[in-house]
Design a protein around this nucleic acid. Structure first.
Lengths: 358, 358
DNA sequence: AGTAAAATTTTACGCGCGTCAAAAAACTTT
DNA sequence: AAAGTTTTTTGACGCGCGTAAAATTTTACT
């Protein structure tokens, strides 16, 4: 009854390694190792003796067996899954950062699983439900922000080891990793002020993302520090179609000539892309050369901002640093059993990218 | 021994529904239904009597229990997972179509899982490995194209019910759903020719995507049909950074004045975005108005093409039709046991979007 | 060679659920 | 009310693997 198979019994005669391995039992038999040891090998190849490891790996080449992931996850207390949640995957910024995070997870032997909330709180909640179902070792989450169901996120973070990134929600998750908005704005404002008229600040009246608020605050304090009068232009619109909102808002201020200066600092690149589109439509030449009546700058270094007309001067995220540190923090969190003694916030500074628009 | 728990034994006294349910056994106990019947309910709520269903759902409200997904998938012969593979998620076109496909899958009670190949064949192969591991009911795959490891994809499609979309690989997968490239090109060429000089065709010398070849062929046959002399401009560059490739190529042809006509038809929008960026840099005014020396059009209706300067005239995919039909085809395939009698190819026509660039 | 330490094998149980067959109970029909 | 039909319950097995304890083998070391 269930006695262990011996090599000779499962040998495939003249087929030479064509036998299909159904489970770890059979694979252990053909590799001449006991199943528990094989199991140990798959959990950590270095935990078995070298000669054992080599025998397993030899068998692995011949029989291509892979442990059933569902059986593994059912029995392990912690899976190797890592959830990644971004608010809006159609934004190349998030696609890019998700890509870097995925790669780092894979390199460390984890299985990243990517979710997008598509800008909708209901989907964000669904994603958290899906995440609970897969019992991840940890989660890296960039929340929607203002629209998020705060209590749902809070409850989630209490159950699942979570590191927030990009967009901070006070007190939630075991840590936050993001960009230092003050660094972004101080560099753009300083540069614009040094090379021309001081900028007005162009943003949505009801931004979905908490970074927007920090950027406005930073703008105001920067202008005060420089002894300049701030001007904040708030445009209408809701949702995640920032380019269109920026375009409509841009058409509005250009038509009504509401701009107090010849220099516009947009809260983020996607808004700026829309604003530049509006300038083009209105025949307003943008840039710092002669013949140009307007300078436009922004924040984020969105993948497309290099290709706007004119190319967009902006403050760049340190994508690599943010994703590296977020992943590293999550790994530390997992090793600490899912809890930190205190919540940490890590902010990375921006790098000014000077292009043609300002 | 393992005798069934009765309600009274698991009642939580005065806590009123706070007891944590560990498994289906316990949930069956508190709902007063046997475990096999509860199991049946979760597989198909309509397969149990109405009164039974209501008792289960009442208990569900009080105790929020969810079956362990790993145990389910281990025992079911077919999971409810559906794999979605796109070649490059940082391209908003794919992010958009992935979003639509995800939604359709969820609505039908499946669990979509999204993978991006990030433009690299090695990752595409890794993704197929990951997909095998999760034993999906079916897979919707947009392959990399020319760079794909064809034999790996072929082997994969033989094991897993797969529908290809966007980019066709002859004979692989049980079906293909995509756009009709001829429809795209015939509309743009016809329009450009009717409203001005006939276009030259601007493309990469070694396009990664098979649609590019079809578009060139369509351009040539269209020009022949109209009795016009075709001009194909092939630019260098490799990889998935199409905008930068288009920009470099654009700078090249503008500097060397290689354009045979004042009208350029780009193979795709991302190339066109780069080309427009080059025009801007070179001070070439693009559009159909006076003062403009160049017209530019393209194909895809990329999410950003509305915001280029000037906005891009292009031929739009029928995103909805392609994703609808791809998902529907996959569901039919799953119901047919994973095989079709013959491979079908479904192509959807384009819609011309006239904007400012041509 | 002898002994202790480390690694492996045996043996056995458990995870949470799908699924089956037979028995019991609940509805339906005339 | 009896017979027939549908649904549920009971009891049991299996899925593929993690894991623990005890027995055994291998390795390292004095």
């Amino acid at each position: 009854m269930a006695r262990r198979l011996r090599v000779s019994e499962v040998s495939d005669g003249q087929m030479g390694g064509q036998k299909k391995i159904k489970n770890m039992e059979e694979f252990a038999a053909v590799s001449g190792i006991s199943r528990p040891t094989v199991s140990k090998y798959f959990n950590d190849p270095d935990s078995v003796r070298r000669s054992t490891r080599e025998r397993i790996e030899t068998a692995l080449e011949r029989y291509d067996y892979r442990p059933n992931i569902y059986a593994i996850n059912q029995n392990r207390r912690l899976t190797k899954n890592i959830g990644i949640v971004v608010p809006y995957l159609a934004d190349p910024f998030f696609a890019e950062i998700a890509r870097m995070i995925e790669r780092l997870c894979i390199e460390s032997g984890y299985r990243p699983i990517l979710f997008s909330s598509h800008g909708e709180p209901a989907i964000e909640n669904e994603n958290m439900d899906s995440l609970r179902a897969i019992k991840p070792a940890g989660v890296l989450m960039a929340p929607l922000g203002r629209a998020s169901d705060k209590s749902a996120i809070d409850a989630f973070c209490r159950n699942v080891p979570t590191v927030l990134f990009d967009s901070n929600i006070e007190g939630m998750g075991e840590a936050f990793v993001g960009s230092d908005n003050h660094s972004f704005v101080s560099q753009t404002v300083e540069y614009l002020n040094r090379t021309g008229e001081p900028p007005c600040f162009f943003e949505m009246r009801h931004p979905v993302n908490p970074n927007a608020n920090k950027r406005r605050t930073a703008y105001l304090s920067m202008m005060e520090m420089l002894g300049l009068e701030p001007h904040v232009i708030k445009i209408e619109g809701s949702g995640w179609g920032f380019e269109e909102i920026g375009r409509q808002g841009g058409l509005g201020v250009l038509e009504k000539k509401l701009l107090p200066t010849n220099t516009v600092l947009c809260s983020n690149d996607r808004l700026a892309i829309g604003f530049l589109s509006a300038c083009c439509e209105k025949g307003v030449r943008v840039g710092r050369g002669k013949g140009c009546s307007l300078r436009v700058a922004s924040h984020d270094d969105h993948p497309f901002s290099r290709f706007t007309c004119p190319s967009l001067t902006t403050a760049a995220h340190d994508y690599a640093a943010v994703s590296d540190h977020a992943v590293e923090t999550l790994f530390r969190l997992i090793e600490s059993g899912g809890r930190f003694d205190r919540r940490t916030e890590s902010l990375f500074p921006a790098r000014l990218i000077m292009r043609q628009s300002a």
